[in-house]
Structure formats: structure tokens, C-alpha cells
Design a protein around this nucleic acid. Sequence first.
RNA 1: GGGGCGGUAGCUCAAUUGGAUAGAGUACCGGACUGUCGAUCCGGUGGUUGCGGGUUCGAGUCCCGUCCGCCUCGCCA
Length: 603
Amino acid sequence: MLKRTHMCGELRSDHVGQTVTLAGWVNTYRDQGKGLIFIDLRDRDGLTQVVFNLRDVDEAAVNEARSLRREDVVAVQGLVRTRVGGANPRLATGTIEVAADKLEVLGKAETPPILPDEHEAEKIAEEKRLQYRYIDLRRPRMQKMLRTRHEVMQVTRRFFASHGFLEVETPLLIKTTPEGARDFIVPSRLYAGKWYALPQSPQIFKQILMLSGCDRYMQICKCLRDEDPRADRQAEFTQIDLEMSFVTRDDVLAIMSEFITTLWSEILGVDVGEIPVLGYAEALDRYGTDKPDLRFGLELAEISPLAARTEFKIFRDALSKPQGVVKAIRVPAAAGTLTRKKIDGYERLAREAGAGGLATVKYTATGYETGIAKFLEPIADELAAQLALEAGDMVFFAADTRAVALRVLGELRVALGRDLGLIEDAFRCLWVVDFPMFSYNDERGRWESEHHPFVMPREDQIQRLQSDPGGCISSSYDFVINGSECGSGSIRIHRTHIQKKVFEILGLTPQETQLKFGFLLEAFKYGAPPHGGIAFGLDRLIMQLTGVTNIRDVIAFPKTQTGADLMTGAPGPADSEHLKELSVRVHLPKRQIPEPETREPKP
RNA sequence: GGGGCGGUAGCUCAAUUGGAUAGAGUACCGGACUGUCGAUCCGGUGGUUGCGGGUUCGAGUCCCGUCCGCCUCGCCA
């Protein structure tokens, strides 16, 4: 076999005169007839033009080159020389070419079902790209993604190692934990009828590591949650998981801010600047969400006191509800640009978000026009002053319970920012802190953890666990970048009596607590340091760093929305022998679930 | 589980109100061409219109069911 001497993106004018050997895939071929054939050879590094010329090589080699087709794998030996036909400025190697004298076909390709062309990739059905992932991954952009992902992992390990973190692996086959997402479970062969769970996160193990004196832990680990995927969510995903002993919240935020700054600097050469900290309540009030996109303004305004002075029934009805509010969003200079159709779309969006409708008004030099203009007369000047209105602005109103109004305007804000082109090309990070400890689930009639059951209340809030669980503020924090939640953590409970109290609020009986978390409570008894940490969503960080909106594009081998792997055909059936060993019997529901189709390439 | 969009040649798409032999680009096959570079030019092969049923003289098109993919709500401590 011809041994490779260089990569396909490597050769420059400096190499002219050298005899080299390249190996890779035939990206394109251009047969000029008689005895002149060009091959663009591709590997993960780039493209190099190889030329077969009857004037330089024997006829057998030219004939073999003539039979080359796209995606054939070949090795080529030849002389690097300046291009006879002029440079190609679109290629990094565009000034040179390799004049082949030896060709070895290492892997002849059948006609490929899809081609790894960047200009085609956007059009090819994702189903096909997933089915033939090995071809799709040959695209430069996908190679770039794999490389970026690799670099992020390298930077991460280097950063945390240099800050005293130990990389420790935690088990995949673990005990199922109640609450949280649905677990994937694995039958135990040695304990008939018993099951392992796959981890939703290494949460308990990393806390145990703190009790074990590990002091600082990190791991890049797979987490599995059996819930329906979304554009930014897979059942199987990767976390950068971290935990530190003897720290306060601000200690964690400081070092994690430094990590993010380092990451963006090393991967993109971008300075993300000081990362601001925003309270949960303030984030909701100003942006209608706990993961605000700070790349544009359009902040929400609270106008309940003014709204109360109008005769508008929608406003008055909303304000008479418990937690009723009227909130407004000023859209600068939108009166001329927002079409009727767009505004109708926003009204539909508002209804889908739970609102009864969406009140609108235009502000002009002569006052309010259209929509609910007439109702605003009693508060005309004060409203204009509070919202700092200028002629040409529009205002959207949401009047409902606080939760609904915030959700409606929060979603509207994002849609407006996008539609009006207000989103700046930048990375805007922030920490959101001071989340509530619990939220009340009306359906289930009980308190649930806002984050998870091991989150410590903020130090000044501990007594509220007893008196006012709903008002109790936690020590947790979320990392948000450009409106995407990419990390989440907290200071943990390390005192048994507080942990027991939290379990009690969550409705676990002492017996259940003992059964499910007895080992953890026991562990706390024998010397537990205060500790806290965070987990970053690696996939989401890579999405931000590579500018893609689909999590499947940053995972080498992702699954579909129904949890299938279109390349391998997983999930598949287990044979009955195997099931018998595991003491598992399959009991299909009445409506049979068909096997996922295995996608064998046609012969 | 709900809502929305989509599925026609290997790939990307078209096909009028239900009407004749389902077309185009590209890939592939054959031919021409010694400086191309998303090569070009000429010719050709290629179809279970996702699958099953129904309505009709006639279905890619209409109806019912079902499968697959994407977006989304629920869900995601």
C-alpha cells in the first residue's frame, strides 16, 4: 500500500518539487478526455487537486484514473507542482496540484445514495443524512463540528485539571431514583426481576465523591432521560459535570465564568466579557423567561397601576384575578414595518401561549391609533412616559395572570426580536440565580423541586422551608447564553436534617426516604463538607459555538425524535433466549408496535 | 398522547379541476474534449408516487387507516 506522507489540506507552494503521497476520497472528477483527468481528493483536512496526464504517466494509470468515481478511496503518489491552469482561490491548496505517477484504489465505492457536498447538504432530507451518517460526516462542516467538539473537550479537561479537579468516572448501571425524568432501565440477569437505571446525571455520585474527600470532581459523561426529544434535546446527551467542596455560590460562579470565558476565547477567539448575574424574578419581569436572550432589548413593562385606571374590560378582568397583571412591550418603530399578517401571527402565538388575545396599539405624533387606542385616553401621557414611546412605535399588551402574561410576552419578545432583525451577532451570557426551591404541582397536589431534591436553600432562606416552602429561595443557578440554558447547578444540602426536611416537603414518607435515599442520608452522617457544582450541556455549548440550531448536528451519531438510530436500526428486538436469561417477558399492547425498519442499502 | 408540516427516479424537486406514456436538474452508464476546478457538450438507463384499503370509467391528486421524518405542546427533578 502506498503510505501517506501528507494530508489533503496541507500542501502549499513551499512543497513544490516534493514527491508526496496522499490518501482520501474522490470528491469530484473532471475527465478532460484523451489523457487528462483531474481528481479532487478529500480527507478530513481539505481538498487537493490531483492531475493524471498521459504526457506524464503511462496509459494504464490514466485508464484507471478514468474509472474513478465519487467517494472511491484511493492513494496517489506524485510530484507537487504549481498549477498549470492557474490557481483556484477557493481552495487552501489552490496554488498547487499533485501530478500523479502512481494510483492505488484502496476502496472502490458503489454509487453513493447521498453526496457529502456542502451545497447539497441543506437540501438532503435529514432522514437520509442520518441513515447514511458515515457519508454525511465526510462533509467539511461536519468534520469541523467533530473537531470543535474534540477541542471543547480538550480545553475543558485542561482547564479543570489546572484548577485542581479530578476526572472521575461514575457508574452507568445505577439505582433508579424517583421523580425527575423517566429512567431508561436495564434488567439484571443475576437478580431476576430487578432493574438498573441508566443515569439521568451523576448527581448523587458526585456528591458522594465530595463526601469521599475528592474535593473537586469533573467528568464528561453521558446522561440518559427517556423523554421526547426536541430540536435542542436528545434522550442521550453529554454533560460537563462538576462538583467542588468548601465553596459558596459565588465561588462556583466565579470559576465557571472563567471556564466559559476560556472556552470562548480558545475555541473562537471571542471575548464574552463580564458575565452578569440576574435574579430569577427580575429575569421573568423584564424578559418573561428564566433564560432570556440578551442580544436584544424589547423589555417587558409592568403597567398594572395605569391599566387599572382604564375602562378596558380585558384589563380590568385580568387585574381582578389573583396574581392578575397587565404587562406591555414597546416595539420601537414597528408601526411601519409590521404587517397586518405578522400581527395576526403574533395574536395566534399569544393565544397558543395561553392568552385570550393580544391587545395592540400604534403610537403616532397625534397619539394612539387603532386597536385599543380609545381605552388608553385616561392614561395616555403617563403610559407614553413610562414606556418612553416615540412616534412610529407599537405596543403589545398582555393582561392575564402573571404566569400567563409573562409567558405570552416572553414568547412574543423572541418572535419580535427575530422578525425585526434586532438580534445582534454576538454571544451574551448570564447567570440566573435565586430560583424558588419548589413549585406547586396542582395536578399532583404537591410540591415539586424546581431543580432537584438536593439543592440547598439560600443560607438566609433555610427557616422558610418550614414556614413558606413556596417562597423559599434556593442556591441554584443557571448558565444562559443567547437565550439557551446551557448549564445548571447549585450548592447542595450537606446536612441530614435539611435533606430530610426537603424530602418531607416533596411528600416522601420517612419510609420512602429511607428506602430510596437511605444510603445518601447515611453518608452525610460521617463527615460531609459543604459543596456545590454545576453541569453544562456539552451539546448545547457546541451548538452555540458552531452556530447550529439542531442538536443532531453536533452529535456524531444522533437519534431521531422517536429515539431510533436510522443507521443501525436500533432499537431492535431481543431474542427469546436472552430475554429468558433476564427473566423478562415481552407483553405488547393491543396495537402492535412494529419493528423499526432496518435500512439496509439495496443490493 | 395532542397539534402542524412533509414523504413522487439513488438524491433534490415538478406534475392545472381527478384525465392520456408521471417530467426536470443532479447522480449513474455510454460517447466527445489536454488545463479543468459545483467542468462543459451529446445520448441513454432509471418509478411499488411511504404502506394498506376505499370512492371513481379513471387516483401522485379525493376519503379512511397506518408507518416514517421534522417542528411543537405535554414531558424534560
